[in-house]
Design a protein around this nucleic acid. Structure first.
Lengths: 350, 350
DNA sequence: CTGAAAGCGCTTACAG
DNA sequence: CTGAAAGCGCTTACAG
């Protein structure tokens, strides 16, 4: 038994002595400052963990009662975000953890800077944070981890650096599956109706599409690749553009369901029948795909499962477990519905 | 303005200076020690109150119990609930209040009874509660109010008794507007494709429909009134039933947009064109109505506004204001889109 | 990256 | 009862 453990007084100075460093150094570790050598940090962390020392902030956290996780979305206006939220709520309910919901687009006059928000989340003693937004920089996200608030990012636009845990889906494989399905049906003129150029997940889907074409030696035609956004209007505009081509595509793989539905609406307006004249595949597999007429063939993301996994990662980190991996991709699943069929040329006349 | 109020730093020493005593004396007052003269104590207390100084313990308590409103939904799987939630988040963001989101269908193994939930909400010091669920009885809801947690119910299945504040929309007037619109177009065989029999709001819409028919001396035909649920399947089934009638209706007023979209899907399957062969009106006016093809004529509820109003009611009660009314109905608004047209018989042949 | 030194805000022990 | 002085625990600024 060590000196510290014998005496009742568990002070920062005692921790310092125990770890063989100075008090200021322990202070820096506790407050998540980054001017501490990794080795020193882990030495101090070990003593902190062993002695169960609680900083004032951590004591505050204990007083706060029930554990709560901060969940931050950019907005809650898509089937996508709702499903992720439902997954988080599900796992939180099971673990008896409160969910504090924040939507950055719904900020009042006192709009918080990311720094202010970070300070508040730490000060208020959240047991973890789930982020479905690009409102935080990688550095800020890592700062949460260092301050003892385990943080998980869901489907980041770009994979976060450092120690930040992120959860996504197998976008590349999903894109390949969708395109292979269209190729299997006999399509050769297949368009990619894409989302935002800068989004990692969109790029992965596009490259899955390209990979499927190349695997079958189908030449890539740049006119069939139209980038846009993840919103419905992008589908409308993209579809207009594609239908003006001399040789329009016989199939379209859209970057998500919302874009696909925009494309479907435009096709209908131009009397292009789906799936007879045009096959259409979406991505996400939300209820939008199910309820559309015709029901949309779509690459389903396990959105609820992603939300659940995010919360479970936080629980594990709270228990002090180390994670196997900083990045997890859950499998997508192509769900074939009514919006895809062989191209008309291949269907024998009745 | 005093010295203390001018400087930003609100420290114990500043309070002491302001009160004309020493720092230790202020410390004693704050910590409830009894070796302080009554007069000195009250002098210090006055300054504390005026400046709003908080001791570390008080700050801790404040941080732990930062004002948060408990929001309880049955589930988050409809456009309806999402819009209400967004309204709540909007007003909460503006008022700098946290939102604790609970979904009763997402309870873990330790499913709470309403009593347990109530105790917890009170014990944890929520500043208010917004309920979009029928998980609580009227008595339980009233108990929250009595225990000092102002409670507001949004669109209750049945209007709550006692002191419970509830917010709804003008369902009766909306039902009347929808039906009058169809009558104005020339329809006489108008069906009501309803939601759950027991729901107050559904009954109000139905009675609005009946009132509109009676006002124009159009006889009510019971075969045109089909009750169901608020889900898509109810629209599919109800539409099947109506299309089997010897004289099917030329127009359908559906209890909500989801039911209307189910009806639309079934109509399309049976090659009944909307609006040429059948006019269709929904209720709620969510994005579902906008994005459908054809876009759905619908009675828009101010769902976001209802969420906002609920939160503002709580703020008012927190400030001790008395409310004018225990029940508020916000106005609906008929939005005419593409799914309604005169009945075919009235359209002159081209 | 580290820690001696200074500083901050509060509390305690005690002289008057 | 009061408050000058000492002390406690932590943080900050900065020299090395």
């Amino acid at each position: 038994m060590t000196a510290v453990e014998q005496r009742g007084k568990l002070t920062l100075a005692a921790i310092a002595q125990e770890a063989g460093v100075s008090a200021p150094t322990v202070s820096k570790v506790i407050n998540g400052r980054d001017d501490v050598a990794a080795e020193t940090r882990s030495k101090v962390m070990a003593v902190l963990a062993r002695t169960g020392y609680k900083s004032p902030v951590q004591q505050r956290r204990n007083l706060a009662g029930r554990q709560a996780v901060e969940v931050v979305f950019d907005s809650l206006d898509s089937a996508y975000s709702i499903e992720v939220l439902n997954g988080i709520l599900d796992a939180a309910g099971a673990a008896d953890i409160e969910v504090l919901l924040n939507v950055t687009s719904k900020q009042g006059p006192s709009r918080l800077t990311p720094e202010q928000r970070a300070r508040r989340i730490v000060d208020e003693g959240r047991c973890g944070m789930i982020v479905v937004t690009s409102a935080f920089s990688e550095l800020q996200l890592d700062a949460f981890n260092r301050r003892g608030v385990p943080t998980v990012v869901i489907d980041p636009l770009n994979p976060p650096a450092g120690n930040v845990v992120s959860i996504g889906a197998t976008n590349w494989a999903g894109g390949k599956d969708a395109t292979s399905h269209l190729l299997d049906l006999g399509h050769r003129r297949i368009a990619y109706l894409g989302g935002p150029d800068g989004a990692e997940c969109n790029q992965a889907r596009l490259h899955g599409y390209l990979a499927a074409l190349r695997a079958r030696n189908v030449p890539v035609d740049d006119r069939y690749i139209v980038q846009g956004s993840f919103r419905s209007e992008a589908g409308v505009r993209g579809m207009k553009q594609l239908l003006q081509l001399e040789e329009p595509p016989t199939a379209v793989f859209a970057a998500n369901d919302t874009v696909a539905l925009g494309a479907l609406a435009e096709a209908r307006r131009q009397n292009v029948r789906v799936p007879e004249d045009l096959s259409l595949v979406g991505f996400d597999g939300t209820y939008q795909a199910e309820e559309s007429v015709p029901a949309l063939t779509s690459v389903a993301q396990p959105l609820q499962e992603m939300g659940r996994a995010a919360l479970r990662f936080i629980l594990r980190q709270m228990r002090g477990e180390t994670l196997d991996s900083r990045r997890v991709e859950l499998a997508t699943n192509l769900v074939i519905r009514e919006s895809t069929a062989p191209p008309l040329a291949l269907v024998p006349l009745a």
